[in-house]
């Protein structure tokens, strides 16, 4: 037995080492964000003399953008779940030849590059006055959220027995009432998974932020970082502090909702 436990300890050590290598850039981002201001990166491996100057600057320059990103991401979650949940239920429980067509459409939609959507939405938004607007970006971000949310929710709802809803139907509830009162509460976990991922997709969006805004009014934080990166970076600590702040949703998601993530990754890809 000591032999296997020793071997296991070695595996754990190797695992920690792999993780350290893979997550080094993330550590470096945090480290660099705590360094004094400047356009060079003379930071040592440890922030021995940490300063929050980068964060102060990031918050004063990018605070508004962070708020914009939160609003857009939250709006995308609400819109995506409202649209996706009934559809996912239909695709999992209704028997119709349209189910296959719907699924095919969702899969094909994954092949369409974001730039194609940006091209078309730009010309449409220009006419509709939706450029530089939060609703415009929310709708655009739904292009990544809705197909994903439908697939995630459907893969869960497939496991719901039809008898569940039938019982309520016998009591006279309409299909929609039964859906709201029974299916949605039971699907809570998958709704959380879909919502978390949709939030993250929308929060991470850069392409639509870049193409569907033309002036400073509405500027998500991803665009703020991009503009920081410009040609010559002047304040690495502020850039990195903004990067850290923008990474918070991902980190929160990973720590708080760990069990949902692998489910999301697998559900969205394979099904």
């Amino acid at each position: 037995m000591p032999d296997t436990s020793l071997r296991r300890a070695v595996y754990t050590a190797i695992g920690v080492l792999i993780l350290c290598v893979m997550l080094f850039p993330v550590y470096w981002m945090v480290n660099a964000s705590l360094q004094p201001s400047g356009n060079t990166l003379t930071a040592g491996f440890l922030p021995l003399d940490p300063t929050f100057a980068g964060y102060r600057r990031a918050l004063s320059e990018q605070g508004q953008n962070l708020v914009t990103s939160v609003i857009i991401a939250a709006g995308t979650v609400v819109l995506c779940l409202l649209v996706s949940a009934p559809c996912a239920y239909a695709l999992s429980q209704f028997r119709s030849r349209w189910v296959g067509i719907g699924l095919l459409a969702i899969l094909v939609s994954q092949m369409i590059p974001g730039i194609v959507i940006a091209n078309a939405l730009y010309t449409a938004y220009e006419r509709l006055g939706l450029l530089n607007s939060i609703p415009g970006l929310i709708v655009a971000n739904c292009s990544s959220g809705i197909p994903f949310a439908i697939l995630i929710l459907r893969s869960f709802m497939l496991s719901l027995p039809p008898s569940l809803v039938e019982a309520a139907r016998v009591d006279g509830a309409g299909l929609f009432r039964a859906f709201v009162a029974i299916v949605l509460p039971i699907s809570k976990n998958s709704l959380i998974t879909a919502g978390l991922f949709t939030f993250l997709f929308s929060w991470s969006d850069f392409l639509f932020a870049l193409t569907l805004t033309t002036k400073g009014g509405v500027r998500p934080v991803t665009l703020g970082i991009y503009q920081y990166l410009g040609t010559q970076v002047q304040n690495w600590n502020a850039v990195m502090a903004t990067a850290v702040l923008s990474a918070i949703p991902a980190i929160v998601l990973l720590v708080a909702a760990q069990k949902y993530i692998a489910a999301g990754a697998i559900g969205g890809a394979v099904k």
């Binding site: 850039p25 470096w28 991470s204 850069f206 990166l229 991902a250 980190i251 993530i261 990754a265």
Partner: peptide
């Protein structure tokens, strides 16, 4: 635990990863 922490690079906004790697 290690395996799930490994997911972090995938969850980060791509522009955050780009900025970080620019500095590295």
């Amino acid at each position: 635990l290690l395996r799930s922490l490994l997911l972090l690079p995938w969850l980060l906004p791509l522009i955050v990863s780009s900025a970080t790697w620019r500095s590295i």
